[in-house]
Simulated assay, not measured.
Amino acid sequence: MWDSKFKQALPILEKIESAGYQAFFVGGSVRNCILAISITDVDIATSASPAVIQELFPKVIPVGIEHGTVIVRQDRQSFEVTTFRSEGSYSDKRHPDQVTFITDIDMDLSRRDFTMNALAMDRHGDIRDPFDGQTDIHNKKIRTVGNPTDRFMEDPLRMMRAFRFVSQLGFTIEADTLMAVKSSIDWIDSLAVERLAKELEKLFAGGYYMEAIGLCSEVNLWGYLPVFNEIADVSAILGNISAPFNRLYEVFTYIKLTHPAISIKDMIKKWKQSNQTYHATSQLVEAMDVYKKAGLTNWLVYQLPSERYDSFIRLVKVLLAEQISIHQLNQVETSLPIKNRQMIDFSGNDLIHIYPNRSKGPWLQTYLNEIEYAIVANELANNYTEIKEWVMKWHPPEIE
């Protein structure tokens, strides 16, 4: 029954209990254990205060100590340990205005978002379930703990989490909870886009993403998300996605290619994403453009980083209904005459020697780009003498 993650964290529970305090595994790890699906993170709740945890363990990182949360390092792994707590109101719709440490695990569980996450398991595998979360898990229902409107008012991101769980677990949202979502959906406007982006990425990556997309259209979520609210036929466009997208930049690429007027920079800016996401989106858009025009060419594979191969394969499947394999991409990559520009047996200084009377300028980069393309496309051997002859043929010095 015990997942390896639980086994790694078990000594933490045992040490806390040996000091006279309570400790439980809580939240998503317990839910996933019941569902017999993979567990990524194990969180621990305890009656011990953060100060006690710092005394008990040699390696403790106080990441959110004001809210009772620390990270305990155990066997080179990190485990989040949070003191049982009750919470006040959420005036910023994200963090509780005040936190009170308590000793009652059931009261601590009452502040959780959904019944399926309001579970605690002790070191013997016995589960505490004060809100009948196991029944909801069995019935594949997403139900808030207590009044759904109150839960969403405290933190509207919980609505996004509900959509994400629909996608990941294939559950449905319970009727009263769904009704509260529909009446509270405009609160999504109050959320930081960085928080929305994390949930949105997971939503598009789930195995039941189509059900989640349909639900998001039903409650008009898209009307409150940047960029999506600019697409007139957004529900139909997203409804055409025939496979999950694992990364947000794949979603951005899909939007760009189905709505060319929307700029990549605009999407990145409105979603406050990193330069890495910008470059990944740009690389995939360019690769898709090349593929549509010429197929799987040397130049396409040369320009596309290998870490984008899986994303490219998914986009080809969704946008063009075509199948390409990682093996095909690797074959082309292996056959490339060069892997990067540094391997070219010719430089800018060599060009200057050919054209000594020309001032340095953009022409240097243009010529180097032409050389690079010709070599990659197997139109030119990567040999100094042949490159020099090729340059002089296409750009005779006497004409310069």
Rank of each mutant, 00 (worst) to 15 (best):
W2R: 15
S4N: 12
S4R: 13
K7H: 00
A9S: 09
K15W: 11
K15Y: 10
E17I: 14
S18E: 15
F24N: 03
F25H: 04
V42E: 09
P50C: 07
E55Q: 09
L56W: 00
V72Y: 09
G88A: 07
V99C: 06
I105Y: 00
N117V: 07
D126W: 08
F131L: 08
T144C: 15
N147H: 10
F152L: 06
P156V: 08
R158F: 03
M160E: 02
R164Y: 03
R164N: 09
F165H: 06
S167A: 13
A180K: 01
S183W: 00
S184W: 01
S184I: 00
I185T: 11
A205G: 03
G214S: 09
G214Q: 08
L215D: 06
G223I: 10
E230M: 10
S235Y: 00
I237W: 11
S242K: 13
T258M: 10
H259A: 00
S263C: 06
A287C: 02
D289H: 14
V290N: 02
Y291P: 11
K293I: 07
V316L: 07
K317E: 05
P337V: 05
I338T: 05
I338A: 02
K339F: 11
N340T: 13
G348S: 14
N349S: 08
L351K: 03
Y355M: 02
K360D: 06
Y367V: 14
Y373I: 11
A374S: 12
V376E: 01
N382S: 04
N383D: 15
I387K: 12
E389T: 09
W390G: 12
P397D: 05
